[in-house]
Each structure stands twice: as structure tokens, then as C-alpha cells.
Nucleic acid binder design. Structure first.
Lengths: 193, 193
DNA sequence: GTTATATTAGAATGTATATTCTAATATGTC
DNA sequence: GACATATTAGAATATACATTCTAATATAAC
């Protein structure tokens, strides 16, 4: 029943992603997105509750793609590989990586977002936490606050720190940071496994 | 000649800082700043070219206060102490630390800012770079790209990484991160001096 | 005391976009 | 083929602030 859709939700997210990558997040106006897709602005609102929700969808998509590869590696028990996933992914995805800086998991989980969106944000947050806890368990044999903090630091915070300055400058992270990340990993997590 | 000023520039910067700390940067409207100070909006524009310039002034003030202590410590040759300065400062300055996330040195140096502001931003950027180079020289005996990158990573990026997640959550960084920062420091910079 | 002007005062304006609204249009269902 | 409705269309509206403008005021200089 009803007219067939001429565009897909995905197209709008694509368009927003492209505009944000090319001209920064501020350039992602509803009019710009509609123009990029070739749709009327009404169609954007027919699909997305608000601009914020659209941006959050963009962020979610990028984060999921980033995180799934990270978790897959971690699951194999290869902590160093997981830590190095960050600089590698950023080198491979210059456009997307700027989107990563847009939100933090917390904001989407805490803020006043549509139920369905918050749900998905919560899920990916839990998946990440689960992966980390699991790895901490396998590495240290326990999952107290200390072990979790330690794992987060070595696997997430440090790689992020090494990379974020280059994302902001719009440059590819140099090879050398992979060394720092590795060395730090071994120092914090130990040599085993 | 002319009427005596009823307010000082500093008061407006204070007010903007307070509002940003309490309600986030978006709450820093010109009207809100004026209200906080008890001045008319015209007086804000009498002193600051635009809202952006006012915010940049806020940022500059916070960064200078942060950076000077950092550099003073570094000058004494105490690299670890300098690295630990970040979590310590953040614990002591919850309000200010959120301001740190607002801009990066690059933006103020590169963007279209009033000459005088860009000048000051450039100066503090150079002071930091000088301090880092100097310390790299004393530590490694040379200041090639490798040594600089390494020093930036251990002294700035890692402490920042350890701390930024807590700033965002509005919590004080736990003691344990000081350990991670120290351990990483020794790993990356070596044990000497 | 007169004058020039730095500053206060705050009302009025401008602008950029997000959002809403009303009307068309196409397509599945009966 | 008639109907219900999902979707397209895009013009009209709303809003929030930044910024500008005109007028008043106080004080230093003479």
C-alpha cells in the first residue's frame, strides 16, 4: 500500500557522511543532504526525526564498522592486533575517521534520543565492554576495575591518543606510532598471550 | 578621556568560562555572558570582536595556565613529573579541563582569527614545541622527527588519552592512570634521567 | 564649563537553518 | 477502477542568537 519509495534511508546517511567528510559536520544541513540525494527536504524528515538523529545515524554506522573489526580481532585473542587496528583503520578510512570524533557512546546512551537509537547505541557499547571484559579475563584471569581500566587504556585510549592528532590535521598517522602503541601494549598488558 | 569602564575584559572571560563549565559551551551565548556580568550585550561587543573570539580567549587562558606549569616542570628535567602534570591538573581543575577540549592549537594558528589572537596562539604553540624539543634533545641527544614524535607521545598524547574519557564523563581521573602514564613513559622514553 | 570620546544601555535587525505544513503522486489492496 | 496511504515536493514558518545601531552617560583634558 502507498507509493514506492524513491530513495533509501541509507542514501541519506551516505550523503551526510560524504558532506561531513568533505566539508566538516557543520556543512551537513538538511538542505545540503537533500540536494546531494536529489530528494526534497520533506523526505529527509519523513525518514529522520531531526538533523541530530541523522547525524547520530551516521556516527553509529561508522562506529559499528570500526568496532566490529576490532572485536573480531580481539576475539581471536590477538590483543596487539586489536590495538593496531585503530591506526590501520584510520589510514584506510580518512573520511570516516573524522566522524568518529563527533560523538561518544555515552552521549547517545545518556541523552534524550529516540528509544530505538539509544537501544542500538547501548548495544554497541555493551558489545565493546563485553569484548574488553572478556579479553581482560583471558589475560589477567580476573575482571576487577583495575584490570578493565588497564585493558581499556592499552587497547583503546592509547591507540586513540596516538591517532587523534593526525585525524584532526587531516593526515595519515605515520608508521612510527604503531611501535609506540605496541610497546605501550606490552608494558601495560604484559608479554603473555 | 572618556567614561571609565565599569567592567573589565577579564570579567567577561570569567563569566564565559563559568557558563561553559556549568552548562557546556553551547550555553555561552552573548546574552548569557552579559547577564552573568551584569553588563549590556553592547559592552561585550565593545570588547570582543565576536563570540568566537571570546571563546578563543577563554580557551587561551586555560591552556596557558595548564601549559606553563607543564613547561616549568619539564624545564627542571623531570619528564615523568611533566607527564603526570596532566592528570594532576585535571583533578584540580575540573571546570577548566572541559574547556581544553574546545579548540586545538592548530585551529587558532591556522584559522581566520584577529592578528593579535593568532599571534598569542602561535606563541604558546611555539613555547610548547620548544619545551618538547629541548627535552628530547636532553633525553636522546638529538631532535629528529622520531625523537620528537616519541616525546610528544609519552608526554602529551598518552596523558591526554588517559584523562580525556574522565573529563567527558565529568569525573575525576582515578589514581590508577598515573601508573599507566608512568609505565608508558619509561617504556617510550627509557629509564635514564 | 565645554568638549571629545570611551563606555554603557538595550532595543532592533539580520541570518541561517531546522522544522512544519499543505498539496501532489504513485502504488498496493480490494 | 476506487481507495487508502506511503512518499515525494517544496514553499512557508519558526526560532534562536549573533550582531548592529542609536542614544544616553560619565569622565578626562583643556
Amino acid at each position: 500500500m502507498g507509493r514506492n519509495a524513491q530513495f533509501k534511508n541509507e542514501e541519506f546517511i551516505d550523503a551526510a557522511l560524504k558532506i561531513a567528510a568533505d566539508h566538516g559536520p557543520a556543512a551537513v544541513t538538511i538542505a545540503a543532504v537533500a540536494r546531494e540525494v536529489g530528494a526534497p527536504v520533506g523526505s529527509v524528515y519523513h525518514r529522520f526525526l531531526s538533523r541530530d538523529v541523522l547525524m547520530a545515524e551516521v556516527w553509529l554506522r561508522v562506529v559499528v564498522s570500526f568496532q566490529e573489526a576490532f572485536l573480531a580481532t580481539l576475539q581471536k585473542g590477538e590483543g596487539i592486533e586489536a590495538a593496531l587496528h585503530t591506526p590501520r583503520w584510520v589510514r584506510q578510512h580518512s573520511a570516516e575517521s573524522r566522524i568518529l570524533l563527533l560523538y561518544r557512546r555515552e552521549e547517545l546512551v545518556t541523552g534524550a534520543w529516540p528509544e530505538d537509537l539509544r537501544e542500538r547505541a547501548l548495544t554497541i557499547k555493551r558489545r565493546l565492554e563485553g569484548g574488553i571484559r572478556n579479553y581482560a579475563e583471558r589475560t589477567f584471569g580476573k575482571t576487577g576495575k583495575e584490570e578493565i581500566n588497564r585493558t581499556v587504556f592499552a587497547l583503546i585510549d592509547v591507540p586513540y591518543a596516538a591517532v587523534v592528532r593526525y585525524i584532526r590535521l587531516g593526515k595519515k598517522p605515520p608508521r612510527s606510532i604503531d611501535d609506540y602503541i605496541m610497546q605501550t601494549y606490552f608494558t601495560i598488558m604484559g608479554r603473555k598471550k
